[in-house]
Simulated assay, not measured.
Amino acid sequence: MRLIYLPAILTKRLGYFEQQGLDVDVVTEPAGVNAEDELIAGAVQGVVGFYDHTIDLQSKGTDVESLVQFASAPGEVELVSSARAADIKSPADFKGQSIGVTGLGSSTDFLTRYLTQKFGLQRDDYRLLPVDAGKTFIDAMRHRRIVAGMTTDPTASELLSSDQAKVLIDLRTEASTREALGGIYPAGCLYMRAAWVDAHPDEARKLTHAFVKTLRYIHTHSAEQIVDQLPRSYYEKRKALYVAAFKAFQPTFSVDGRMPDSGPRTVLAILSAIDPSVQATDVDLSKTYTTAFLDTPGGK
């Protein structure tokens, strides 16, 4: 499980959904774009994914909104294979190369395209290869199917700790995100179709309160205590590495689930820079997130 989405399974394991009277199934998808597709198809009611999908979907005619924001940084890192680190010093050196992302249309896709554009490349100067995360990402880099790629922890920490990769651009802290992207980039969140939220305000409120309770738990317990709540399959024989990676990202999690004031504008600017359909659409940022349920009492 990628650390950026850990509040989903943690809320389930802590019993906070049940405390709110909710019966919630947590279904894992390899990339955010897959979960987005499931939402549009009506197979799921909500997605724990990146906030940028709310803007992307609105530009395509589908209104979705973030109900609770998990973090003010993407938690992503652009890695380069150690075997190629001598000649690939920045995204400017990606020309003619295959670059890994979790999925085409995913947030790693969005951010990679923005960073390469920022460093002077055009979209046809390099190839994006969807390699998911975890073992498939590691194998793609190990077997040289990709020379670089964007992923999250614990995948990034595993590659770095084994010296199979080096950091090119780190988006795992608020400070490094500001430096790379020009502002805060709100990332992980719970987003749902606006029509479903309007029709089910009580369930939306309960979901919001359950997740906020988890965010408070994250800030009042140690990384070791939090990882102990997770299924062993999440870290297998790498528990120490998982704990260390979580401890580093822990301060970036929100304490109250609120959207950072300047965050939506930063995300819109980045998506507009890489996607003509977003640029051409009069996106209403006020419809991409809501604090209504954060401000509504009644959470248990």
Rank of each mutant, 00 (worst) to 15 (best):
I88Y: 09
K89M: 12
K89F: 06
S90D: 08
S90P: 06
S90A: 11
P91C: 08
P91V: 07
P91I: 06
P91E: 07
A92D: 06
A92M: 06
D93V: 07
D93C: 05
D93G: 01
F94C: 00
K95N: 08
K95M: 08
K95R: 15
K95F: 09
G96F: 02
G96P: 03
Q97R: 15
S98E: 10
I99T: 06
G100E: 05
T102A: 15
G105R: 05
S106E: 12
S106Y: 11
S106M: 09
S107V: 09
S107F: 03
T108R: 07
D109S: 14
D109H: 15
F110W: 06
F110S: 13
L111V: 15
L111S: 13
R113N: 14
R113W: 11
Y114M: 12
Y114K: 12
Y114T: 12
Q117T: 14
Q117K: 15
K118C: 11
K118N: 10
K118G: 10
K118Y: 10
F119A: 14
F119S: 14
G120K: 11
G120H: 10
G120I: 10
L121A: 13
L121D: 12
Q122P: 08
Q122E: 15
D124R: 14
D125E: 09
D125I: 10
Y126V: 14
R127D: 13
R127M: 10
L128P: 13
L128F: 13
L129N: 06
L129P: 01
L129S: 10
L129C: 06
L129W: 01
L129K: 12
P130F: 04
V131G: 06
V131P: 03
V131M: 07
V131E: 06
A133M: 11
A133E: 09
G134N: 13
G134V: 11
G134Y: 12
T136H: 10
T136C: 04
F137R: 01
D139S: 11
D139E: 14
R142M: 00
R142Q: 07
H143E: 11
H143K: 09
R144W: 03
R144C: 03
R145E: 04
R145N: 05
I146P: 01
I146N: 04
V147G: 03
V147S: 09
A148Y: 01
A148G: 02
A148R: 03
M150T: 08
T152K: 02
T152R: 01
D153L: 03
P154Y: 05
P154I: 03
P154C: 00
P154S: 00
P154M: 00
T155Y: 00
T155W: 03
A156Q: 02
